[in-house]
Every structure is written in structure tokens, then in C-alpha cells.
Amino acid sequence: MPQVRTLLSTILLPLLLVGTAAARVPQDPPSEETIQFFKVNCFSCHTIGGGALTGPDLKGLHERRDREWAVRFIRDPKAVLDSGDPYASALASEYRGVVMPTLPGIDATLAGKLYDLIQLESGLEKSRFEGVQVSDRPLNAADVEKGRALFQGSKAFTAGAPACISCHAIAGIGGLGGGKLGPDLTAAYSRLEGRKALVAWLAAPPSPVMQPLFTGHELNEDEILAVVALLKDAAGRGEREADSTSLTFILLGIGVCAALLVVFDLAWRNRFRAVRRPLVARG
């Protein structure tokens, strides 16, 4: 599969790109806001010169697509794809049908600024967005254990990010399992096709729920590797959390409620019940 992808990205896609407009060179340096926006919203799926992650490497985007197309796509990727655009369709099929989400607060001006930023960074020998630099050392059992502790919250993330279990389940947690606000992460490692994309995701989580929580509370390299190790281990297990944990949880809740009702009845066993009935009973 990697060979097919390489073939597609190095031969077929550039062919599709032929005929795109020669780009104007942006005059102004990118603003700090644009850089920050790219970092928060784009960097977890794209590099500039560091290879493909969940989405394509953006180096040389201006040579492949003209500004008008790129701005239209960045503003509303799904609309461009739905319009039957051949390039967008080729991208979607190359990236396993993953469609780029609509970015929060995006408009034509911001999309244009992002296009300029990508063009400027593409011209550099080494872009600051070349990719997250995390060690590629082999992951071991100690990493998995550390990842589990971080996932469950028994070991806190250094910068104060919330524990994964708050919102996510994963195979092998035990007890009543993990949270259900976010997706089950058992298959996350295989879904993102391995370590590189997962590292990028964890370095700057792009989901709208996670983004505000992790901005300013980013995971450090050791923590990223530990969580990656846990996710890889979970993917290897292949078993998702049993649905029976939900039923157990509900039954335990009903049990607590029933126990409290019994306590109330006992605590108020001498409560006033009636005037006439006890008198009649005694008579």
C-alpha cells in the first residue's frame, strides 16, 4: 500500500496538477495569527515538506493548484468534493475517503493567508511545519504501562491536559471502561495508519472538542510516545470494550437508587401516615 500511495502522490497527482496557475509570490510575511491557526488547525494532518500524514504534504501546493481553487477548497472541502471536482475526488480516494473538516472561523481572507503561508514555507529549505520531531525509537512494555497510566489519569500530563479516560474508551481498561463522549480509541492506531500520523495528531489534537482543551496544555515527547505505545498495544489486542459495561453501570445506578429509597423508608419509619386509619385500626 505505501508503494501505491507513493506512486499516486509522485506520479499521478502531479499529472493532475498540471495546468495550474503560476502563483504570485506573497509579499507580506505571514502574521502570527495565521501561523498559529495553521499550527492548531492544519499541522496535525499536514506537513510542509515532511511527507503525508492523515492528509497530503502541502509543500509546493501553489505549483499544483491555483489560489482560487485552493481558497475554495480550504473554505469548504466537502462542497468542493460534492461538486464532483476531479482533484478533490482523487485526494479523497488516496486518503481512504477522509474528507478534510471545515475549519472553525475560516473565510476567504484567512484561506488566502493560509495559501500564502504554505507557499512561503514551501520555498524554505526546512519549513517550521516539516513535522513533529519525535524520536522513532522502538516502543516497549514500559511505554505501554506509562501510556495506560496517562490514559487513566493515575499519572497526570505534565502540562495539565485532561486524562483520555474522561472521554474515551480503549480495550483493556477494565472495570466500567472508559468515557463515551469521544470515540473508542481501540482502533485509532490502525485508523490513522500508524505512528507518524498519530504522533502528529497527539502533538496538536485538531478535533473541535479537544482543541480548546489541549491548546496551551500540549503533550511532551515522552507522553506522546507513551500514548502511541498504548494505542498500538490496544490495536494489537483487537478487542473493543464490551457493551455489557453500560448495562452494569445502569444496574449499579438503579441499585444505588433502590438502596437510598430503603434508607429513606427506614429513616422515616415513624413518619405520620394518617389520623383516621390508625384510630379505626385500634378500635
Partner: peptide, 27 residues
Amino acid sequence: VLWWNAAPLRLFMLEVTGLGLAILTLV
């Protein structure tokens, strides 16, 4: 609250108690 929930057993206890009280309210 996050400190309390750092141990899974404590998290489960808190959640079960919370659900029990919520069902009690509903009843």
C-alpha cells in the same frame, strides 16, 4: 474533581453514585 477521578475505581464510584442520585431524582 479531576484529581479524585485520577484513580479509575474512584471515577467509577463517583459516576455510579451520580447516576444513582439522578435516577433517585427522576423517581
